[in-house]
Design a protein around this nucleic acid. Structure first.
Lengths: 245, 245
DNA sequence: TCGAAATGTCTATTGATATAGACAACTATA
DNA sequence: TATAGTTGTCTATATCAATAGACATTTCGA
């Protein structure tokens, strides 16, 4: 990573934003760990081959995100934020998965509904289209930092009162347990990536152009019957997935 | 997905680019499958709440990407390109994984080197830092469409002549077989996402701001000894991962 | 074959982005 | 307590992005 390349000009994305992205990546790759600071604005301007004011716009954006903090006379300090590791396996559970990486995790219930299963939901849950399902909209935090935003569907008949229990326990695992399902496994996970939309930007406190990891996952009980289908949108700069085979 | 929301104004990313992203997503979600066409420019301009010229800039960008094709007097036709599905499991292999989804796959060897293992490579391959390793830089195509760009490291002592065999076979599996390793398994996969850098844009024929899925993977022989560590960068709009547990 | 509906092209104007230079204000240290 | 090194602020200018309107060109069906 020695010798940061000059930015190549791209149309449609402001230079300062491209540079902000480059600096953000350099920070998260640990390029400035020795000093704990970003190089001086004049140095960055030279490295990227742009005007100092453009670098200042980039740093201002990063400061807005809480990634750096400029101190007049000293320099621009890095406020480190590590990427959380999120293991994906048969035993994938959000809270347990993060384990000791976060001191506290929360799941905020944004909304819920009982509705008829769409074609997609029905296919994943292996039920008839139109069967009643419970839909939960949640945002999950780790140490007060939003990590993921998701929508989950459950077969309504099997889990009466799910919403209330979830609201109290903030945990799918505990909710299942309270409803008589003591264990479940992750059957399938699909992973894609995309840009954040306006809802992601709001719920996950992202900035425009942010990158998301998107999972579609299906959990079954121990007999292989689907109990949950969920689409989750993770802030890609705050999390990585690990698959151990 | 009914009733496309107005774009929210974001600084740093041009409006036409945001709209291009929105239309691209709508296309890939199948929103216009009935007609096989994008709605007229005037309609899109109304939906997004912008000027027709801005929509035209967005459509021009999508045409440049080969996603749509405008025909004067008729409309703007969609040139569909499906996302390839790439299964990740103990038996993950690039070519076999794509299976019948692509008629032909290629692996272009961009470059190679024999070098001393860096700290990261040594850790993954479980060898001493500085041990000789072979590094391969490749770009993999499916049906002439670049899908991924990757760097792989192999312990040099174990695989003499690897580069020449790989160049001919275009396959890690076949190269291993020719060198006496008849079978291997995927031990660990880490998945993250990020923006494409200038190298990605060039090698994968992407456009600025494109999203990548990035994997760090380690393969072992059947005794559990690491034989390959690779970092791959996938064009997120052309591929999704599936993990079956 | 005419006309409605669609994309293509041109001109003009306004605001955001990027460069450039100069200097003020603050921090740490020799 | 100077002073070198840093961030903060201001002015000015050129280019890009977005809006607005007018009209040409092509396609397709009534």
């Amino acid at each position: 990573m020695a010798g940061m390349k000059q930015v190549q000009r791209q149309t449609g994305v402001a230079l300062w934003r491209q540079i902000a992205d480059r600096i953000r990546e350099a920070i998260s790759s640990g390029a400035y760990d020795e000093t704990g600071m970003v190089p001086p604005e004049t140095v960055l301007a030279l490295q990227f081959g742009v005007n100092r004011h453009t670098v200042r716009s980039a740093l201002a954006a990063l400061a807005q995100e809480g990634i750096v903090r400029a101190v007049q006379g000293r320099g621009t300090l890095i406020e480190r934020k590590e990427r959380l590791n999120f293991p994906i396996s048969r035993r994938t559970r959000f809270t347990d998965g993060l384990g000791d990486q976060a001191r506290e995790t929360h799941s905020l219930l944004l909304g819920h509904a009982e509705e008829a299963a769409s074609a997609e939901v029905a296919r994943w849950l292996r039920i008839e289209q139109g069967t009643p399902v419970i839909r939960l909209e949640t945002v999950r935090d780790a140490d007060r930092r939003p990590v993921a935003r998701g929508t989950s569907w459950f077969p309504a008949a099997r889990f009466p009162g799910l919403v209330e229990i979830y609201r109290q326990t903030e945990s799918v695992t505990k909710t299942f347990a309270a409803l008589g399902l003591s264990d479940y496994v992750r059957a399938t996970t699909e992973i894609t990536a995309a840009h954040a939309d306006s809802g992601d930007i709001a719920d996950l406190e992202l900035t425009p152009g942010a990158v998301l990891l998107i999972t579609k996952a299906m959990n079954t009980d121990l007999e292989g019957v689907p109990v949950q289908y969920s689409i989750s949108r993770f802030a890609a700069d705050r999390v990585q997935f690990t698959i151990e085979n």
